[in-house]
Each structure stands twice: as structure tokens, then as C-alpha cells.
Design a binder for these strands. Structure first.
Length: 450
RNA sequence: GGAAGAGUGGCAGAGUGGUUGAAUGCACUGGUCUUGAAAACCAGCAAGGAUGCAAGUCCUUCCAGGGUUCGAAUCCCUGCUCUUCCGCCA
């Protein structure tokens, strides 16, 4: 969300920034809605002030035993006017909020301009892809060769974009997650959190998944709710029943749960930054990805991810962004996987984001780098949506915090990367990276069953 | 799932229809005193918004939504959360 005062002052700057994402000018509509809302609000407040004053007078007269009939009638006559203005004001406010909640974040100045992912800019590179003396095998062939990766059975129970892992691969997935978490907590100073996987609508709004990306989310529903909804429609009862809502959303990333920890809070600025990490499954509809990455484990409806989230004071988020990206890179270095870091261009940057670094790991079978982590500075965008603020000692005013999130790392994709980069064509096995051995009982290599 | 109770400012906790945005205590901030600190004393201390050059004025908010009323923290309805007990369960 945005600072309306700032938009009023320099609308052209906001439009120019949004234009970098390919948006047409947004401020004329925003300012018009804002104008309407404020005019109604002022009018309403004048009436309310009149009502309050006269009501107080009635109280005074009555306490002195006088007759207040005349003035009571006067106030009563204001009632309808106030009710209708209240309605209009609420509608105007709603319209403004709807408009604002669908507009993406402002981009940082140093985000390169460009229409799509082909215009992202490489920042640095680490490691060299190994020269292969045979055709590279992709992770599906490797996994099925090991008899430890099973898409068919997953499809039977859940449809496409699900998978079962067995034995060594299942254990390696777990080992990766443990290794990531332990490195974050012991070396990077993050606090491990175990948080809800099902969250309410307000929470999904806070981090920006709703309302715009509704179609990408999985939603649960409860029969209780349906019963009540039917009752509601039949009875034509008040809207009050609508607030009874046990429907929950499956998190698409633990960024949602971790960032919303500070929703509605006022934090002592001295206690910032807060740095969280969590290992959770993530659930995504992948609605817009039909036909994309249909083979293998790259794009699943359910996958594991270790997430990092930082909450900082407003002047500290840029350095925190670099730090966070470094934490993710550190994991790939320890795994000895070749990767590069890129900065996303304007057209490829996400809705909530001011600036994003992607880490891309080398995937031999595709002879290219593929995304394995995305580290973003959301600035005050999410904080405004979830009303998360901080206050410096001795200061009266509160400020919106800045929030950042990054994968550290996507576990499924990390498994893919390890399988392909550590593949041994001699026997179809997969060497265990040194850092994972302690997590796999000292195992040196995953070898085919039997 | 059933029963009972409760949700008020950073915390604790008064307040059951009328100058209550809210007593009091703690915490916090400034001051007096002190070599310094503590104690004591004095003063200040919610958030969001509208309007205005500003000083200020006004509006909203006592879990949330709806209702009654000239007027709601206070009365009614619905929901949510928490506590205790029972049931069920990993």
C-alpha cells in the first residue's frame, strides 16, 4: 500500500515509477477516489460533531432536570443524513482501498529497466559448471534410475505436479532442510520458527498474495461455513454472520507466516532487526504456468522451502537485503554448487517488491542456471498493508518497518541441483555433498536399490 | 464438540447509558532536589484520520461486525480469541 500524502504531493513521480513496470498512469484515478472520500469524510464529520455537541447538551439539561424535547428532536432529524453519508463514505473508502491494493510496489532506482526476464542483469557468479564426458541426465532419469522418485504414484493420489521420494532421496531432502536451518541459526543469526501453514485472509492480504493473486492460492473450506452461508442467504440476516469465517488459505511460502508475525505491532526500534527462518511446505496452484516445467520437480503444487524473513528499521533494509542474499549464497557455496546472482529487471520484478536478487543454480541437463532463491526487499509495502510499525526510544511518532524475504533455499530445487551436479554416470548413483554427510549418517553416495 | 467465565491504553486494572478517550498503579519521558544515583516531589505520556501556513479545531477507535438510543466501554444479537472443567484425539 502507499502513502497517499506522498502521492498527492508528487503524483508524476509515482506514475513514472509504475510506468517502468508497464503500467499506465494510476494517480489520476487514485487522486479522484481520494478526493471523493475525503470530501464525504469532512461532510460526515461535521454532522457527527453537531450530533455529539447536541447530545452532550441534552445530557446537561437532563441532569439539571430540564426539558430537552426540542433539542432531542433536532438531533433525531440528523440521523438519516448521517446514516446515508456513512454509507457513501464507506463505499468511497472501499473503492480507494480496492484500487490501491491491486497496484504493485514502487521499484528501487537501481533496478534495471526491461520488459521481461531476458533483461535481468547478472551481478556475480560463483563456481564453474563441471565439464561432462557424457550426455547429462536430468534429475527425473536419475531419480527413477535409483528407483527413489515416483511421479506416477503421486499422480494417482493427487494429480500432476506432485511427487513421492523414497529412501536416499527422501533422506537427502530432509538433510538439505536440516543443513539450511542449522546454518541459518548457528552462522547467520536467524531465529528458527515453526508457524501455521493455514492462515486467514487478512494475513494473505498483508504479504500481498490477496486480493490480486487469489487464483494462485489453495483455499480450504469448512462445512460449518457453508451451512452458515446458506443460512445467511435464506434468512437475509445481517452481515454479521459473514464475519464467521473459518476458511483458511494454504501458505504459498512461509514468508506469509513469518512476515505477519509483526502485523499490527509497534516494535521498539532498538530491538530491530528481527531475523526469522522456517522450514515449511509451500502450496501453489501454478495457475499461470500451464505447460511450463511440466517434467520433473522444478515446479510442484507442493514443495519444501526454508525461508528467511527480516524486519528492519526503515533506513536499514538495503544493507539487510545484501546480507540476506549473502546468507543464501553461503548455502550454495557450502554445497559447492555453481551459481550466479542476478538482479531482476523492472518487468520481471514481483508485485510486492522494490528490488529482488535471484540466485540461479547450474542445472547440467538444461545447460543453464535456474532459480533456486529469490531475495527481495519489500520496503514498507507489506508493512503498510499489515500495519507493522516501529518506534525509536523517546520518539513519539511511529514509522512503518521494512520487510524482506528470501529463500534459503528452495529444498526441492536444491535436491534437483545436487542430484544432477553430483551424478555419477559410472553406476547411476549420486554422491553426497560433504556438508550433508553428517545429516545422512555419514553416507557417501546414494546408489541404486537392489 | 459441551459447560462456565473473560476480552478496556506498553502492562496491570477501575468503570453498567450522558462533559469517560477512559480513574488508579507500574513502566516510560522531562524537570526539581543530589557530587552522582536512588528515593521523594512536579509535569507529560494511545493510535489512526479530516481540516488548517500554523497554533489549533474536529472525527473515529475500550476484541470484531451488526442493532437499540437524541447519546454506548456500558444494553441486545452474531462471530472471534483466551481461561477453567468435561469429551475426543496426534
Amino acid at each position: 500500500m502507499f502513502d497517499l500524502r506522498a502521492i498527492r504531493q508528487t503524483p508524476e513521480e509515482f506514475d513514472a515509477n509504475w510506468a517502468r513496470r508497464g503500467l499506465s498512469p494510476q494517480t489520476p484515478e487514485i487522486l479522484a477516489l481520494d478526493e471523493t472520500k475525503r470530501a464525504l469524510q469532512t461532510e460526515l464529520q461535521e454532522l457527527l460533531a453537531e450530533r455529539n455537541e447536541k447530545s452532550k447538551e441534552i445530557g446537561k439539561i437532563k441532569s439539571q432536570g430540564g426539558d430537552a424535547e426540542a433539542i432531542m428532536a433536532e438531533v433525531a432529524s440528523l440521523k438519516d443524513k448521517i446514516a446515508s453519508l456513512e454509507e457513501k463514505q464507506k463505499e468511497a473508502e472501499e473503492a480507494l482501498k480496492t484500487k490501491l491494493s491491486g497496484i504493485p510496489n514502487q521499484l528501487a532506482e537501481d533496478v534495471p529497466d526491461g520488459p521481461d526476464e531476458d533483461h535481468n542483469v547478472e551481478v556475480r557468479r560463483h563456481g564453474e559448471p563441471k565439464a561432462l564426458n557424457s550426455e547429462p541426465k536430468d534429475h527425473v532419469d536419475i531419480g527413477e534410475g535409483l528407483d527413489m522418485m515416483d511421479f506416477a504414484t503421486a499422480a494417482k493420489m493427487s494429480g500432476s505436479r506432485f511427487v513421492l521420494l523414497h529412501s536416499g532421496l527422501a533422506r537427502m531432502e530432509r538433510a538439505l532442510a536440516q543443513f539450511f536451518l542449522d546454518t541459518h541459526t548457528s552462522e547467520h543469526g536467524l531465529t528458527e520458527v515453526s508457524a501455521p501453514l493455514l492462515v486467514n485472509t487478512k494475513t494473505m492480504f498483508g504479504t500481498g498474495q490477496l486480493p490480486k493473486f487469489r487464483d494462485d492460492q489453495f483455499k480450504t473450506f469448512s462445512t460449518d461455513y457453508l451451512v452458515d452461508k446458506e443460512l445467511l442467504e435464506e434468512s437475509g440476516l445481517s452481515k454479521g454472520l459473514m464475519t464467521y469465517n473459518r476458511d483458511l488459505w494454504l501458505i504459498p511460502t512461509s514468508e506469509v507466516s513469518l512476515t505477519n508475525i509483526v502485523a499490527e505491532e509497534i516494535i521498539d526500534e532498538e530491538t530491530l532487526p528481527r531475523r526469522y527462518t522456517a522450514f515449511t511446505p509451500c502450496f501453489r496452484k501454478e495457475a499461470g504456468s500451464a505447460g511450463k516445467d511440466t517434467r520433473g520437480m522444478i515446479r510442484m503444487h507442493q514443495f519444501y522451502k526454508v525461508e528467511m524473513v527480516s524486519v528492519t528499521a526503515p533506513d536499514k533494509s538495503e544493507e539487510e537485503h545484501e546480507r540476506m542474499t549473502g546468507c543464501a549464497e553461503n548455502l550454495l557455496k557450502k554445497l559447492e554448487l555453481p551459481f550466479r546472482t542476478i538482479v531482476l529487471c523492472s518487468g520481471d520484478s514481483g508485485f510486492t517488491v522494490r528490488k529482488t536478487y535471484d540466485l540461479e543454480v547450474w542445472i547440467p541437463s538444461q545447460e543453464t542456471y535456474r532459480e533456486i532463491s529469490s531475495c527481495s526487499n519489500c520496503w514498507d509495502f507489506q508493512a503498510r498493508r499489515m500495519n507493522a510499525r516501529c518506534r525509536a526510544k523517546g520518539e513519539k511518532d511511529t514509522k512503518f518497518v521494512h520487510t524482506l524475504n528470501g529463500s534459503g533455499l528452495a529444498v526441492g530445487r536444491a535436491l534437483v541441483a545436487v542430484m544432477e551436479n553430483y551424478y555419477d554416470p559410472a553406476d547411476g548413483g549420486v554422491f553426497v555433498p560433504d556438508v550433508l554427510k553428517p545429516y545422512m549418517g555419514g553416507m557417501e553416495k546414494i546408489t541404486p536399490k537392489g
